[in-house]
Amino acid sequence: MSNVIRFLESMGSDPSLARLSPAGYATAVAALELDDAQRQALQDRDAVTLNALLGGQPKMYCAQFPGREDQPAKREEQPEEEPQDDEESETPSSKKKH
């Protein structure tokens, strides 16, 4: 585990670290074994730069849910008929069923 991730994990789990004053935070970051770029990014609370330095995914998608479904994801009862489309814009593959 990188020292940056370990520090973030500690901050997340330890309220006293999360509530550090700016000076206390700077001291805590200064005490970590990091290269200069990582230290500066952590000092700046710059997540984008930290991610680039650590080799994380450049772009993340977080959507996990469709706004509409042609079929319920699990075996839930669909009580009402869904509205008909007048100008279907989905690709055929979006109608794939389980």
Binding site: M1, S2, I5, L8, E9, A47, L50, N51, L54, G55, G56, Q57, P58, K59, M60, Y61, A63, P66, E69, D70, E90, T91, S93, S94, K96
Partner: peptide
């Protein structure tokens, strides 16, 4: 992405689902 890196430190075989997304590709 930093959360994904954190997860990778918990296990040796973490497979990201991110490559399955795509601009213009139905999320369904």
């Amino acid at each position: 992405p930093l959360v994904e890196l954190w997860l990778q430190d918990m296990h040796h075989d973490v497979r990201s689902l991110q490559p399955l997304y795509g601009e213009g590709k139905s999320r369904q």
